[in-house]
Design a binder for these strands. Structure first.
Lengths: 200, 200
DNA sequence: TTTATAATTGAATGAATATTCAGTCATTAT
DNA sequence: ATAATGACTGAATATTCATTCAATTATAAA
């Protein structure tokens, strides 16, 4: 035997994370096809060959990122729905958290951008397509349910609930794109603007 | 001499349009790198080689599409600003027209999607980058001016005008992405939802 | 120190695909 | 009818990567 097993695994995991994080930026910004393995390797500071010790293929990295992005997003949405607060508060919290996260974390915005682009594209791995087909509607459904609840108790405007949920997520995605495109220069808009679509 | 000059030019123009229209869908949905010349040729119903009678390169087609997309968008924005109606009406008309156009014309949504993706991406032709740098802020600036006017006369909410303009366009882009991703199944949301960000 | 193990490199391979080009076909003015 | 013009084809070429692999280096247990 050589190196300590646990330390080894930890190193492997760190490298994987490093690759995934760098690949996220490149895939989200430039897309799967325009991102070269050599780009990911160079930005990560090592040789092309090494990528293949950690991932089977470029498509594998992409698919893993899609899996993680939906995992986090849909987990957060489910947690939101469970919160012990009135529906109106849930929408408010969701918007606040989303805007705050865009501001704080570039990766958060990139993750949304990745989802947005992958959802539109045909040119992605089969496995990623499957994940999208299975997970893509979850956030819409959850927000729709919360909105319906809020409309019952009169705290959310009486627009069509599906329309409201659609505009909720499309506006968020639009902001994510803008944040990703303008990086440092991005200034979070007043959350009350978006909130005024839902509340009087 | 052979074929009639004018007829010839007309044929050329029609073919060009055909190529551009088909390429728009492919570029907007899959991106520059993931779109093959052979895809454009096949979908247009002729051989790969012929593309090169009409365009110098794949990047040329892309750049031309970016040029056209910004040309139309910014022309429309300038016309909007000139309309002899109060500022509040301009915002209302803009939103109505944008939503109606998304519904009516797939190419309109694709054109917005192309702009959105190209604005984020590094992996696009230099010439396209230049066009984006020169044209990208125009719609924001115009909407900001209209909003400031509307706030002076009290017909538009008193949020930060830059924030309002940002949310205006990011929400529209988000909708364009959704429309492009869901094609036939897309149902235009109630325009009053978006309008409630601007008007009481 | 030696040795087993895994990380790492970068050149070689092969596949995908953009672009070119030599030749064919279709049209129409003469 | 035919000659000139330009549309059009598809195979050949060139280029750009993804992926593989044989060799090297670093680590730490023995």
């Amino acid at each position: 035997m050589a190196r300590n097993k646990d330390l080894n695994k930890q190193m492997r995991d760190e490298r994987r994370e490093q690759i995934l994080s760098n690949a996220l930026r490149l895939f989200a910004v430039n897309g799967l096809a325009a991102t070269k393995i050599s780009d990911i390797a160079t930005i990560s500071g090592f040789s092309q060959g090494l990528i293949y010790h950690y991932f089977r293929s470029k498509e594998d990295i992409f698919t893993e990122l899609i899996r993680e992005a939906f995992g986090k997003l849909n987990h957060a949405a489910r947690e939101l729905e469970k919160l012990p607060v009135p529906p109106r508060e849930k929408i408010k919290i969701a918007l606040e958290e989303l805007l705050k996260s865009f501001e704080k974390s570039e990766n958060f915005a990139l993750s949304h951008l990745l989802i947005a682009q992958a959802t539109v594209s045909d040119a992605i791995p089969k496995e990623a397509k499957k994940i999208i087909a299975a997970e893509n509607m979850v956030p819409y459904e959850i927000i729709t349910r919360i909105i319906i609840e809020g409309q019952k108790d009169g705290s959310i405007k009486q627009f069509d609930s599906n329309d409201l949920a659609l505009v909720f997520w499309t506006s968020v995605k639009g902001l994510a794109m803008h944040r990703a495109a303008h990086g440092k220069k991005y200034k979070t808009p007043d959350k009350n603007i978006l909130m005024s679509m839902f509340f009087t």
